[in-house]
């Protein structure tokens, strides 16, 4: 069994899993760096076995960075079984390969596709009231969820080679993502409503305000259509800016 100090070292090192990210082996160096203290502890006094285990973990690796803690813990749980002779050494890489793709997809959908937009929108709305409140909300809320999930997943995945599967089953990321996305849609609408209210002059007749409001909503619908076709945010902004310059030059 790994002691507490080694567990903390491995967990902290998973924070650097992307430090040597590259197009060839992606996170492989970062992953080996993370599990190395655990391997040294498991195969204490057997340098050849440590080297053999290190060779197993320098293979291609890529997953969502926040789930690397879970996979590192699972790999160490496997290594303990390998050391006892209960599992074949090839099993750890099969489990890693099987999990890294699915956890990558779950992480992209949950963290990048749901939690990050939600926390961004909330913090942006808060920043409009007070910038410091915005940044505090962003850092506190996001990191609370991300670190809590990492710590929980790490501990449960370390318990046994199957711990990670039980953890994923209990966590129900798909349902959580659905709730967060519904909230994202609400905040997104409110947020855009704020921008529309900002660009509409408030000192004119109500009929003009309604007309300009309709034009703004029409513009958003048009953007939805354009984005569906080209799906590139930066390009849309660049072309819009060029169009604005062109119009302002024509209008003199």
């Amino acid at each position: 069994m790994l002691d507490r100090k080694t567990k903390v070292r491995v967990f902290m090192r998973t924070m650097l899993v992307q430090a040597c990210w590259n197009f060839e082996n992606m996170q492989s160096v970062g992953f080996l760096y993370s599990v190395l203290p655990g391997l040294e502890k498991i195969y204490d006094g057997e340098p050849d076995k440590i080297k053999a285990a290190a060779r197993r973990h320098i293979e291609f690796f890529n997953t969502h960075p926040y789930f690397s803690s879970h996979i590192a813990a699972m790999a160490l749980a496997f290594e303990e079984k390998i050391q006892k002779g209960e599992v074949d050494p090839s099993a750890v890489n099969s489990a890693k390969v099987g999990l890294m793709g699915s956890l990558g997809a779950i992480g992209d959908s949950f963290f990048w596709g749901s939690l990050k937009p939600f926390v961004s929108l909330v913090s942006v709305l808060a920043a409009l009231i007070n910038p410091y409140l915005g940044i505090a909300l962003l850092l506190f809320t996001y990191n609370y969820f991300h670190l809590r999930l990492r710590i929980d997943g790490f501990n449960k995945s370390l318990s046994s080679p199957n711990g990670i599967y039980q953890y994923l089953k209990q966590s129900n990321f798909a349902e959580k993502s659905e709730y967060i996305r519904a909230m994202v849609m609400i905040f997104l609408g409110v947020y855009l409503g704020f921008f529309i209210s900002r660009i509409l002059p408030s000192d004119q007749k109500i009929i003009f305000t309604v007309m300009q409001f309709s034009v703004s909503v029409g513009l958003i619908v048009a953007l939805e259509f354009v984005y569906r076709k080209i799906a590139a945010t930066s390009e849309i902004v660049v072309f819009s800016a060029m169009f604005v310059i062109l119009i302002s030059l024509i209008m003199g």
Partner: peptide
């Protein structure tokens, strides 16, 4: 007008990616 277009572009990108009923 870019004060609306910039955030609206980001918003539609989220709108397109989000799959929710």
């Amino acid at each position: 007008v870019m004060f609306l277009i910039i955030p609206a572009t980001g918003a539609v990108s989220v709108y397109q990616h989000c799959r929710v009923s």
